[in-house]
Each structure stands twice: as structure tokens, then as C-alpha cells.
């Protein structure tokens, strides 16, 4: 499988950067991947009452086209594997909005044996919304915050992940054991 996959980084055009930042702010596509209990808070956001499509946001089922990853609620190690793989599928620049107390410090699952307590150790979080569960108003506030950060160029989680990849990789390997990517890939695609 090694050779048939090319990923290339593109040169940054300083001249058009403000235009692109404005476009990134006005057109955030979400990964439709709801972890934990916060998924149920999403329907009010996309339907008539809070309609996030007026900001150009849209749930997008394909991770290759997406910009924003919403972690909605607690993350178990099993979900975290999928989250990391989906996050690495998304092209730069990409942002993560952690939703609720659980990704920050475990929340009500603070002493659970099977919940990831601090998500920021495994993937970089740009904006975190506290609360259990945050109401749609709080989520809208978080969305405004990430839009502001994107416009100012402060939402640099993707750059942190690229620069500190060894550190994140070390933390992930401590949790799942060495070579977990290959093992999981073999389980899904038996012919590898």
C-alpha cells in the first residue's frame, strides 16, 4: 500500500492570505461524527431554530472536505482511535471544537477507567466549551470564538499537531500500544 498515496504541502501565498482567512471563517464544514451524548445537541443547531447554515457552516459527511471537527462529549479509547484517524484524514488547515466538560477533564466520568480524561494530550484542541451539556447558545458562542480565531490566524491546532507530532504520537502510543494503526487497519481491511 505504501507507494500509491501522495500528499503534498502547498506554498503559502502571503498576498491572498487575508482573503483565504475570510473565506475559511465564512465557510466551515463540520465532520458529521458525533461522539458521546453531545450529538443530540446538534439537531437544534442545524435546524430552523439556530440554523448554523447562515454562517456558511454545513455538516459534511466526507472528512477530506471538512474543516471543523466537533468532539461532542466523552471520548473512550475506542472512539479516540477513530477520531485520530479521521483527524489525520482532514486536509490542513483544520480545527477542533471540544464540546462539554468531558474532553477537558473527564467531567462526570472523572474516575472512569475507560474514558480519556484530557483530550488535548492526543489531538490539539482549538476551542473548548465548558458545560454538561452546553446548551446550543453556548455552542454558538464557541463557534463565534473559533470564527474569530480563524480570522486572526490564532486557530493553529493543525500547525501544532504538525510541529509536535512526536509528542502527540508518543501519548497515543502510550494509550494504545505501539503499532496500533497497522493493527487496526488490518482488522478493517483484511487484505493489507
Amino acid at each position: 500500500m505504501g507507494g500509491d498515496f501522495i500528499s503534498y504541502e502547498l506554498k503559502e501565498f502571503k498576498l491572498f492570505e487575508p482573503l483565504f482567512r475570510w473565506a475559511r471563517k465564512k465557510s466551515i464544514w463540520l465532520v458529521a461524527f458525533c461522539t458521546g451524548c453531545g450529538g443530540i445537541e446538534m439537531p437544534p443547531l442545524v435546524t430552523a431554530r439556530y440554523d448554523i447554515e447562515r454562517f456558511g457552516m454545513m455538516p459534511n459527511p466526507a472528512p477530506r472536505m471538512a474543516d471543523l471537527f466537533l468532539i461532542t462529549g466523552y471520548v473512550t479509547p475506542k472512539t479516540l482511535k477513530r477520531i485520530i484517524i479521521t483527524y489525520e484524514l482532514m486536509p490542513d488547515p483544520k480545527y477542533i471544537l471540544a464540546h462539554g466538560s468531558c474532553p477537558i477533564n473527564g467531567g462526570v466520568y472523572w474516575d472512569s477507567y475507560n474514558v480519556v480524561k484530557q483530550l488535548d494530550k492526543y489531538i490539539p484542541i482549538d476551542v473548548a466549551i465548558a458545560g454538561c451539556m452546553p446548551r446550543p447558545e453556548a455552542v454558538m458562542d464557541g463557534i463565534r470564538e473559533i470564527m474569530r480565531k480563524i480570522e486572526n490566524g490564532e486557530a493553529d491546532g493543525w500547525r501544532r499537531y504538525r510541529e509536535n507530532y512526536e509528542w502527540y504520537r508518543k501519548n497515543q502510543d502510550e494509550l494504545f500500544g505501539e503499532g496500533w494503526r497497522e493493527r487496526d487497519a488490518k482488522r478493517w481491511l483484511a487484505w493489507l
Binding site: 502547498l10 503559502e12 482573503l19 473565506a23 456558511g56 474543516d67 490542513d92
Partner: peptide, 25 residues
């Protein structure tokens, strides 16, 4: 719903053009 502005697809295309990474097969 209120819906996106009418020029939203142009913004989307600009954003996709401004992505810093592209994957090819």
C-alpha cells in the same frame, strides 16, 4: 431556515482553493 448568503458557493470554492494540503492518488 434563514439559509446561507446567495454567494456562499463562491466562498466555499475560495476556501477549498486556500487549503494548505492536497491529497492525490
Amino acid at each position: 431556515r434563514v439559509g446561507p448568503p446567495i454567494y456562499q458557493p463562491i466562498i466555499d470554492t475560495l476556501k477549498l482553493l486556500g487549503k494548505k494540503e492536497s491529497v492525490s492518488h
